[in-house]
Design a binder for these strands. Structure first.
Length: 302
DNA sequence: TGCGTGGCGACTATGACAAG
DNA sequence: CTTGTCATAGTCGCCACGCA
């Protein structure tokens, strides 16, 4: 296993540990006869095996404590006292169709989902949408533009000399892979790729705004990873020593598709607004550098 | 410090053609 | 005609970085 694999696995376990630690604090706070000691021990032991395992564990312990304190305060303020059970949802989000990491089950059987994030820098990419998904949801069609882009790239390469000229008729993947060896390929890709990005953004905005409520909803749900979730959702983000907690206010309009509107942000990016509040930023791009590789849109939280 | 950009890598889809 | 195999294309999560 390569070092990167270890790091990846470790961060997965780290996130898990972060979640169960908080679940444990919450169970205590609501005096529920349940603890997560077993999960905590298992994950702590697992983390020990990774590079700097001790350090990683301690970092999550500190962050979890801090987050839990803030979360419990928040719940008190919001008069959420009637919690009868705490459940760790963890990574079942695909099957459970929820962003919740820990569920709070209330005495009336309502559920509050809590999404828990612990990051060093930024919020990361929310989702990377491929052309297929965009075609399906937004009826985006830039086939012609992409074909034209390739024609121009090949034409341009053909005018060069030597190895570059030979590449003019090579497979797309070959050309793509040569871009590090021949940086001029990146320049060419950028030159002809940019207009594809710009056009696709225009088309995406127009098409999104022409969608019906249900289709708008489906697209946004795809990005948020929501399906038929009935939970009220509480988001917490812990960065460094700062924790922010907020109800997922946009949730209802996301589900209903009401009040959703796309608007241009920059030449290659647009925003999706829920009742005039920016909820997502989408950026037209190529997955692997500029031009020449597969088209995609990346979604970021604002 | 937010945003646009660049990059890696694992995985999946597709289509051509060979083998059964 | 169906199944297998191979190369190429596309998908997508994660991360890094530079610049205004």
């Amino acid at each position: 296993m390569s070092k990167k694999d270890w790091l990846k696995k470790s961060s997965r376990s780290k996130a898990d540990l972060f979640e169960v630690l908080i679940a444990d604090y919450l169970a205590k706070a609501f005096k529920i006869k349940k603890d997560f000691k077993k999960e905590i021990n298992n994950l702590t032991n697992l983390l020990k095996k990774f590079e700097n395992g001790q350090l990683r564990t301690e970092e999550e312990q500190i962050r979890a404590k801090q987050t839990a304190i803030e979360l419990i305060k928040f719940l008190k303020r919001e008069n959420v006292n009637n919690v009868k059970d705490v459940e760790w949802v963890g990574r079942q989000y695909q099957t459970q169709k929820t962003l919740s990491d820990v569920d709070l089950i209330l005495t009336n059987s309502d559920v509050i989902g809590v999404s828990l994030k612990s990051t060093r820098i930024g919020l990361g990419t929310q989702k990377n949408l491929g052309y297929r998904a965009l075609r399906e949801h937004l009826s985006l069609n830039i086939d012609k533009e992409i074909e034209k882009m390739w024609e121009k790239i090949r034409l341009n390469l053909g005018k060069k000399s030597g190895k570059l000229k030979l590449l003019a008729n090579a497979a797309r993947g070959i050309i793509k892979n040569k871009k590090r060896k021949y940086p001029v390929i990146k320049k060419i890709g950028k030159k002809y790729g940019h207009s594809v990005q710009v056009k696709s953004v225009k088309q995406s905005i127009k098409n999104f705004n022409n969608l019906g409520q249900e289709e708008k909803s489906a697209f946004v749900k795809l990005i948020f990873g929501l399906e038929e979730d009935k939970r009220r959702l509480l988001n917490t983000v812990t960065q460094k020593n700062k924790t922010s907690i907020y109800w997922n206010e946009v949730y209802n309009s996301i589900i209903s598709g009401k009040g959703l509107l796309a608007r241009k942000l920059k030449n290659v990016s647009y925003g999706i607004y829920s009742n005039n509040k920016l909820i997502l930023r989408l950026q037209a791009s190529f997955t692997n550098g500029i031009g020449i590789s597969a088209y995609c849109q990346r979604a970021f939280l604002p």
